[in-house]
Nucleic acid binder design. Structure first.
Length: 671
DNA sequence: GAGCACTGC
């Protein structure tokens, strides 16, 4: 590997300790600065990035430090791959040797040679389970820490803990500049001493804060003068005025979801038709994740000369996909966000205002190729005074069942006392502990049970699905159950339904099983295999080929995990009773019963007597069997059960006697 | 007779 690193003594960059307005380093000095810090005193470095633009130089600097491996995490698979290959290229080495990466399903490393390893934060968490002190790494860098995903937050909490046991471990936390100060506070404060009584507490090591300019071009921000009442209409008129008044360059619009996007496209098309001058120049394209792959790819095709591309997108273009050629951004100021109410145990997807950090990220999308402009559909006064600086961490608005089992597996016994970057609501924690207790994954002392608890934690899925897989072993239907598990863990195996609703319903009928959606999935999977995993077959049956390929991949991973756990891979050869009992063993808590004399298909959940209905996408819609269990609830004007299966109520008490005996007054659970 | 922000293991 070429030694192209900083030589000590050549340049000494300034370390910033003030929050705003301090000296900022241009991106090409990253490496110099980090090396300097590593050489001097700091064991933790917070890198605040202003503007957009990624650096690849930090890990190279880290490598020069010790000789042991440096790990660099990213929250997304694509980012891991891109950064890894860019670094390999810059260092002039082969990807997979000195520089490598690991993401789910893909390990491009050579343990004997790899010195810089890129991975998703989820993969690093799995590694901590086998190596709690991460002894093979001397430097760990966490990128995009300001996004505050559950994995990143768990990782930050664990790294802080690991650093107390391994004082020589160096951490580099890369975050948006607005978050740098609070990250630094988190790493220097001991939880026991936090709060009003901590006078006189002196941190042992103060993280160094470093502020760095990104690579992006300058983006000029425009605000509306008066608040807008209808952001879809405001979007359309803004796009039209950019098109009329501004020089060439593509436009990227951020709206909240498919409905908004379709409405905006329709309006824009109508307006464009009214004026031939406009319609000849605009190419309007939607972008969201459930859009079929071929249509998604259209946004990446180069814009023909004399035309202007307008991409109307969800948040997917904020971080996950990067469009080249965008010069103008229109920001509605809203996005859809998940919120979880631990009291009612209901998750809700709602349109909510974005944070300043998101607004800056969106604006940065306009400055990738040359200086750009961002049009914010809210007032400057609102941005300055009312917009919150960062979003609510995912941890505080999600179900925590998977998170809790993972912490238990990592040996964190006192979950409520864990040192989080942001504490989750205690009610959500207690809910999660209850669920895990009822599954038999945790015992009376809230410790993982053996073997079920430890095995469930090994399976990289929701614990209810893991339990279903474990139960399939005794019932002799593991092959069928891991197929169901793989399909339940992706969004949908059908093509998106708009416009082809009737055809889609007919296609579904060809596979429909009286037992419900889970057994229907088995029929679909069988058909797919018999077709030779054919994409034409998928197309003909209104199934999403990409999704089915993913199912195959997940299924393979689950098979390997199952074998490692000693589960016998066995087919029940059509005995659907066994399959349904295994599903019940994981999902007994989601049982509901048709209301007597109900004319509209109203069910009540066994657990909370909530009013619920079978979702119209289910094969059991309008069939309304007396007893069902469901995979999840979606809440709109009503609560709908998605992925529904018929059961015999006697299986419930069989699967979880304790849970149903104590339904009205659950035993308090030891924390 | 409905509705799907986005990741990840």
């Amino acid at each position: 590997m070429p030694q192209q690193f900083w030589k000590p003594g050549t340049e000494k960059p300034r370390i910033l300790e003030d929050e705003e307005g301090g000296v900022r380093l241009p991106v090409y000095k990253y490496r110099t600065a980090i090396l300097y810090l590593v050489e001097t005193h700091a064991t933790t470095i917070i890198v605040g990035e202003t503007g957009s633009g990624k650096t690849t130089q930090i890990p190279q600097a880290g490598w020069a430090d010790g000789g042991r491996v440096i790990a660099c995490t990213q929250p997304r698979r694509l980012a891991v791959q891109t950064v890894a290959s860019r670094v390999a290229e810059e260092m002039d080495v082969k990807l997979g040797e000195e520089v490598g990466y690991t993401i789910r399903f893909e390990d491009v490393t050579n343990p004997a040679a790899t010195m810089i390893k890129f991975l998703t934060d989820g993969v690093l968490l799995r590694e901590i389970m086998d190596d709690p002190l991460l002894t093979k790494y001397s430097v760990i860098m966490v990128d995009e820490a300001h996004e505050r995903s559950i994995s990143t937050d768990i990782l930050l909490g664990l790294l802080k803990k690991i650093q107390r046991r391994r004082p020589e471990l160096r951490l580099i936390i890369s975050s948006a500049t607005i978050e740098a100060k609070s990250m630094s506070d988190f790493f220097q404060t001991s939880k026991k001493h936090r709060g009003p009584e901590d006078h006189g507490f002196a941190p042992r090591k103060v993280p160094a804060i470093l502020s760095v300019e990104g690579r992006g071009f300058n983006v000029q921000i425009h605000y509306v003068v008066e608040p807008v009442s209808d952001y879809v209409r405001a979007t359309v008129s803004t796009v039209l005025s950019i098109h009329e008044q501004e020089p060439a360059g593509d436009i990227l619009v951020f709206l909240t979801g498919q409905d908004d996007i379709d409405a905006a496209i329709q309006l824009l098309t109508e307006e464009a038709h009214a004026s031939r001058k406009i319609s000849s120049g605009l190419i309007v394209l939607p972008l969201y994740s459930s859009l079929p792959r071929a249509e998604q790819d259209l946004v990446f095709s180069p814009t023909p000369r004399g035309k202007r591309k307008v991409v109307i997108s969800t948040n997917i273009a904020e971080t996950s996909l990067t469009l080249e050629g965008v010069v103008y951004v229109v920001d509605s100021g809203f996005s859809k966000q998940q919120f979880y109410n631990p009291i009612s145990d209901i998750e809700n997807l709602v349109v909510a205002p974005i944070s300043k950090a998101s607004a800056r990220q969106r604006a940065g999308r306009a400055g990738r190729v040359r200086p750009g402009k961002c049009y914010r559909l809210y007032t400057e006064e609102y941005f300055v005074n009312e917009m919150s600086s960062v979003g609510i961490p995912e941890m505080q608005r999600s179900k925590l069942v998977s998170c809790v089992i993972q912490l238990k597996a990592l040996g964190i016994d006192n979950i409520l006392g864990f040192d989080w970057p942001a504490s989750p609501p205690p009610e959500a924690m207690i809910r999660a502990l209850e669920v895990l207790y009822s599954l038999g994954v945790l015992d009376d002392d809230a410790k993982l049970t053996s073997p079920v608890g430890f095995q469930a934690a090994e399976i990289p899925l929701d614990p209810m699905i893991s339990k279903m897989i474990l139960s399939s072993n005794q019932l002799g239907c593991s092959e069928e159950i891991i197929t169901i598990a793989a399909i339940l863990s992706i969004q949908s195996i059908w093509v998106s339904g708009k416009g082809v609703q009737k055809e889609l319903d007919e296609a579904k009928l060809r596979f429909a099983a009286a037992e419900g959606d889970h057994v229907t999935f088995l029929n679909v999977y069988k058909g797919f295999l018999q077709s030779g995993k054919s994409s034409q077959w998928c197309h003909k049956n209104y199934m999403n080929y990409q999704a089915m390929k993913k199912v195959i991949e997940i299924r393979e991973q689950l098979r390997r995990t199952a074998l490692r756990l000693g589960i016998v891979l066995k087919s029940c050869e059509g005995d659907m009773l066994a399959v349904r009992k295994a599903v019940t063993a994981g999902f007994f808590a989601n049982a509901s019963r048709l209301e007597a004399f109900s004319h509209n298909g109203m069910y009540k959940t066994v657990r909370g007597s909530q009013e619920v209905y079978i979702h119209p996408s289910s094969v059991l819609f309008r069939v309304n069997p007396k007893w069902v269990i469901y995979h999840s609830l979606v809440s709109t004007d009503r609560q709908y059960m998605r992925n529904v299966m018929t059961i015999d109520p006697s299986w419930l008490t069989e699967a979880a006697p304790h849970f149903f005996q104590n339904l009205r007054r659950p035993d308090p659970i030891a924390l």
